[in-house]
Simulated scan of single mutants.
Amino acid sequence: MTTDNNILVVRSFINQFWNGAEPTNADQFLSADYVDHAYVPNNRKGLEHTARLLHSAFPDQCSSEESILAQGDRVIVRLRMKGTHRGNFRGTEATNNPIEVLLYREFRLANGKIAEHWALLDTASLLRQIGAELHEHPACQINKS
């Protein structure tokens, strides 16, 4: 696949899966051995679960492309996600506040399908916009017992 074809696959995936709120169409975009480095579990189930949670909290969310780069089998896209907080998100009930956050996604493609995915969302900005309490404690703590 060429880098242009990889870009087309990624754009279609974002538009149909994320913006179209169609987690059932993941099979047409993801390889059989898909690995997700952003969500738990680190496979298509984690991706689909995260998409359902996001669409439940922000049903009108839509990500628009700000830039996209491709090299070899990799595609990196910077997105601006906008929406309205209409459902529970990480323990914060709906506020009906508008949200607007930056999101970066990296994809590795193989044979025309997405084989791996990484994501970085400006979660702190999102939480501030919905009035969620930000803690000084690290998001992940290691239990040394």
Rank of each mutant, 00 (worst) to 15 (best):
N111G: 08
D36S: 14
P41K: 15
C140T: 10
R44Y: 00
A94E: 07
L127K: 06
N42E: 14
A38V: 10
N42F: 11
P59I: 01
T50H: 13
Y34T: 04
N25G: 04
S64K: 03
P138Y: 00
P23H: 14
N43K: 13
C62R: 11
H117E: 03
L47R: 13
H117D: 12
A38C: 09
R90V: 12
G46S: 14
G83M: 02
R105M: 14
N88T: 12
G91P: 05
S63L: 12
A132N: 03
R74F: 08
N96S: 14
L109S: 06
A124S: 04
N25W: 05
T92V: 15
Q61I: 12
T2E: 06
E133S: 08
A38M: 05
N42T: 14
G91H: 06
V9E: 11
G87Y: 02
K45Y: 05
L69I: 15
T123C: 00
K82Y: 07
G112A: 11
D4L: 07
E116W: 10
P138M: 05
R128M: 08
E136L: 07
Q129F: 02
A115R: 03
L126I: 03
H137G: 05
L109C: 09
V10A: 10
N25E: 09
A119E: 13
S145E: 04
E66T: 10
L127G: 00
V40M: 13
I142E: 04
E136P: 00
G83C: 07
F89V: 00
E100P: 02
K82H: 14
R108C: 07
L120R: 09
Q28P: 01
P41Y: 14
D122C: 02
V40F: 10
Q61S: 06
K45W: 04
A139Q: 05
E48N: 13
D4I: 01
A57M: 08
D27S: 15
R74S: 04
V10S: 14
G87V: 09
L121M: 10
V9G: 12
G83S: 10
L109P: 07
L126Y: 01
I7W: 09
E133T: 12
A94F: 12
E116C: 12
E106H: 08
T84D: 03
N42H: 15
